[in-house]
Simulated assay, not measured.
Amino acid sequence: MNEMTVQPTVTLPALQVSLDGLGAGQALRLTNADCDRLFGVDDALLGRVRNFALGHGCIVVWDEEGLTFCRQPHATCCKPLG
């Protein structure tokens, strides 16, 4: 995986541009401090981050030091399971 990190002063609009520029399999890393600054620290944080990631074709991977937005490949042919 090709992982990049953001500058500590990044804004939400700049983060959106960075995520939109990721190719399939690329990732962008945020520290916990950056995540708190950009998305807040209340109980709605997880939902905001999840919705933000989904809106940019990414999944979120959390760990002790922060989170990583991972760009997913576009599906060309999908069938529902079941």
Rank of each mutant, 00 (worst) to 15 (best):
Q16F: 00
G40H: 10
A44S: 14
F52Y: 15
T5H: 07
L46A: 09
G57L: 03
A33F: 03
L45G: 05
R48M: 11
V17W: 02
T11I: 01
D20I: 01
N51I: 06
T76Y: 04
T9D: 10
N51H: 10
D34H: 05
L67C: 12
V6W: 02
G23Q: 01
N32C: 07
R71M: 14
G82N: 11
A75V: 08
G25R: 03
A24D: 12
D42P: 11
L22C: 03
G57M: 01
A53C: 13
R50M: 11
Q72E: 08
M4Q: 15
M4H: 13
H56W: 08
L67T: 02
L15R: 08
E64I: 00
V60M: 05
L81D: 06
C58K: 12
P80H: 13
N51E: 12
T9V: 00
L22T: 03
C78R: 10
D63I: 06
F52K: 12
E65L: 05
K79F: 08
P80W: 08
L22S: 05
G23L: 03
Q16S: 12
S18C: 13
G57D: 05
R50Q: 13
T5I: 02
Q72H: 02
P80I: 13
G40D: 08
G47Q: 12
V6F: 00
E65C: 00
V17K: 10
G40L: 05
